[in-house]
Nucleic acid binder design. Structure first.
Length: 312
RNA sequence: GCUGGGAUAGUGAAGCGGUCAAACACGACAGACUGUAAAUCUGUUGGCUUAUGCCUUCGUAAGUUCGAAUCUUACUCCCAGCA
């Protein structure tokens, strides 16, 4: 029996299964600007790995500077997956991410390389590591119907069917989700896949703030301005890919509503808020281990040495 | 120097005699979150051994009043116009 991997080569299934069971999945996550990416590149280079970017913004084409996407030279050192997979404005969800990430993992493992799942989008990490099960496509139609209802109507629907309201009962998405959950009677899995090592990079608050401000200083330049202008011309600001991040701030700067200093400050604030939300997300999982950059490096060196020596 | 406007919690900004520890926005802090998650949403945000309780706040000082962030007077500082 043969299966086909994403690059079209036939590989014997026995080897796939074998490899999947013997090679670890290395997961490096943490807040923005914590230094995940460079650590991952170092480790992947050293131990023969490839990086799958678990980042909800770097999946978009043409969003490079503003998303701090790994550069071309980064990508020469180590192969990066899941960058530039869709255009801003296209629908790209966790579902898509999980499919693509799993294909990538299979491919990587089939060549006896080690998959590194790296990024700050906690939901994306979870979808792989907890092996999310999504409802059938038919559910999407139903979801569309539900989306046309108001928050109040959704709450009424909950009461009518005696469904408990979610904690986020003023948030439409979660009202819909709780109805779906009720209908699917699918149990949600919160235990992590075997052979998966998840580290979140921890930093002192002060240090992370400093790193974020430094990044603001280096990122605000002509390239960023040009990129923003191009994105605006090509895709507009209406799509979700462009929300809540740096591009809106740069747009204000371009139209002269704010000064450069104000723009940088706004960006630092936004990034800090993002970092806090990321940390909050990661904190709720007991299988996430927090380590500093150097602790994480040692830890993974140790694990990977054992795997490569066949000690596992 | 004269005339007018203004000084309110971390910031911006309402309030213009009682129902004001003081709206609202932002920020800050905490939290939720399996189909666009860098999204979306929630709670707290003067102090106190967390209390339908007490205390200290609305530039500073004094006064009017049963009662003042709100009225009066003086002072300090800001801003605009005139000198």
């Amino acid at each position: 029996m043969k299966i086909t991997n994403s690059s079209g080569h036939n590989i014997p299934i026995s080897k796939v299964q074998n490899s999947i069971s013997s090679l670890p999945l290395i997961v490096i996550t943490g807040p923005t600007a914590s230094g995940k990416s460079s650590l991952a590149i170092r480790l992947a280079k050293k131990w023969g790995g490839e990086i799958i970017c678990a980042d909800s913004r770097t999946v978009y084409k043409d969003m490079n500077i503003g998303t701090a996407k790994p550069t071309k030279s980064d990508r020469k050192i180590v192969k990066h997956w899941l960058l530039d997979v869709v255009k801003p404005g296209s629908r790209f969800t966790v579902y898509d991410f999980k499919q693509l990430a799993q294909e990538a993992i299979k491919d990587i493992v089939s060549r006896d390389k080690i998959p590194f799942l790296v990024g700050g989008t906690g939901l994306y990490i979870d979808s792989v590591v907890l092996n999310f099960v999504f409802g059938p496509d038919a559910d999407l139609d139903r979801r569309e119907q539900l989306e046309s209802l108001t928050v109040d109507q959704l709450i009424t629907l909950h009461e009518k069917h005696h469904i408990g309201l979610p904690e986020n009962y003023k948030n439409k998405r979660y009202l819909i989700r709780s109805i779906e959950k009720y209908n699917s009677n699918q149990s949600v899995n919160y235990s992590i896949n075997p052979n998966t090592y998840v580290i979140a990079i921890s930093t002192e608050k002060k240090e992370l703030l400093d790193r974020i401000s430094e990044r603001a200083d280096t990122i605000f330049g002509d390239k960023l301005l040009r990129e923003t202008q191009q994105l605006k011309n090509r895709y507009g600001f209406e799509n979700e890919a462009m929300t809540g991040n740096i591009y809106k701030i740069v747009d204000q700067l371009l139209s002269g509503d704010i000064t450069l200093e104000e723009a940088k400050q706004l960006f630092v604030t936004k990034d800090w808020q993002l970092a806090k939300r990321q940390i909050t997300w990661l904190r709720r999982h007991d299988w996430v281990q927090w380590k500093t950059l150097s602790e994480a490096e040692q830890y993974f060196d140790h694990i990977l040495r054992n795997f490569r020596d066949g000690v596992s």
